[in-house]
Design a protein around this nucleic acid. Structure first.
Ligand SMILES: [Mn+2]
Ligand SMILES: [Mn+2]
Ligand SMILES: [Zn+2]
Ligand SMILES: [Zn+2]
Lengths: 157, 157
DNA sequence: CTATTATTGGAAATCATTTCCATTATTAGG
DNA sequence: CCTAATAATGGAAATGATTTCCAATAATAG
């Protein structure tokens, strides 16, 4: 297992430590999986992905870590209505890959879309500002999801 | 208990029956509570509100009914991150009171806002159309929530 | 290297939601 | 109004994701 090779082992290392948390093997593994994952992983998904290489990282730790990461804002916790929380890496404070979701209510397929995002985000920023002032909220985040039925599910009828 | 008095007993009666469901006391009670409720009720909230007058409507029925109502689109099922689903009446296909949510991540206070809604909704409609075409989705609904910290919670620091 | 203390894993507890199934109630049709 | 067909119900038990507990372990400052 090569170490150094740059600034360390993932840019998040610093951010995480900076928040006063200790960096552990398990946490690193979780962060690593999340940062590379395509989809939207559940705690168990992560457990499974990690388990072969880190057999001694327990599910409990995964839940705990996800909570922390979520608090710190490094990970988004999402609910797509399939009975378990799903997590996705937040890459940066509002990284290049900011996107929203299209959710099929039949088969729970999720599509990340970035189309139209620019207009949306612009409007959202305004709204955020307005709402923040009016309701004295310190707004930190937003969630946008469209629900519908995907083509495959439509065809099945 | 007066009956008639107009078109029947709540405009939803028809809509519900129209979908092929039987109208029962329990269902009527649930619909009634939801249509008058201010906040965002959980299944148990509803159970409690109903129980004194309808002691023989069980929690199971409430869950089942909420599922149905949610499927039919008469009720929105929401997740505010407090570990239980919350429901709100949808009044009409996209009634006058369409609103979005501002969620305090500390105390879970929820604010319904309608400010800025017009612009939002307009943009959303466009986006819906665009997304629907591009991804072949039949979009039926959207969810928008802003997360942040309310004033009271900010002050507590 | 040590002391301090955050973190961990695993078993058990929680708790919202579902499942089961025998019983009951609604409704269309006569 | 009556009846058959079957949708709906409730309560107990099952489920299953997430939490809680606590003794053991590991990360980190100095
Ligand atoms: Mn995504
Ligand atoms: Mn609301
Ligand atoms: Zn689908
Ligand atoms: Zn608050």
């Amino acid at each position: 297992m090569p170490r150094g090779q740059c600034g360390g082992q993932g840019w998040w290392h610093g951010k995480f430590r900076g928040c006063g948390y200790r960096m552990t093997l398990g946490r690193e593994a979780i962060l690593d999986v999340l940062s590379k994952a395509e989809g939207h992983l559940s705690a168990e998904d992560i457990y499974i992905k990690i388990h072969s290489r880190y057999p001694n990282v327990g599910l409990t730790t995964i839940y705990r870590t996800l909570d922390v990461l979520s608090d710190v804002g490094m990970v988004y916790k999402l609910d797509f209505g399939d009975g378990r929380a799903r997590y996705e890496f937040a890459e940066g404070p509002k990284g290049v890959h900011h996107h929203h979701h299209l959710v099929c209510t039949e088969c729970h397929k999720i599509i990340d879309y970035t189309d139209f995002i620019d207009d949306e985000v612009e409007l959202l920023n305004q709204t955020e500002k307005g709402l923040g002032q009016k309701y004295k909220f310190k707004i930190t985040n937003h969630l946008i999801q469209f629900y519908g039925v995907c083509q495959e599910c439509s065809d099945k009828k």
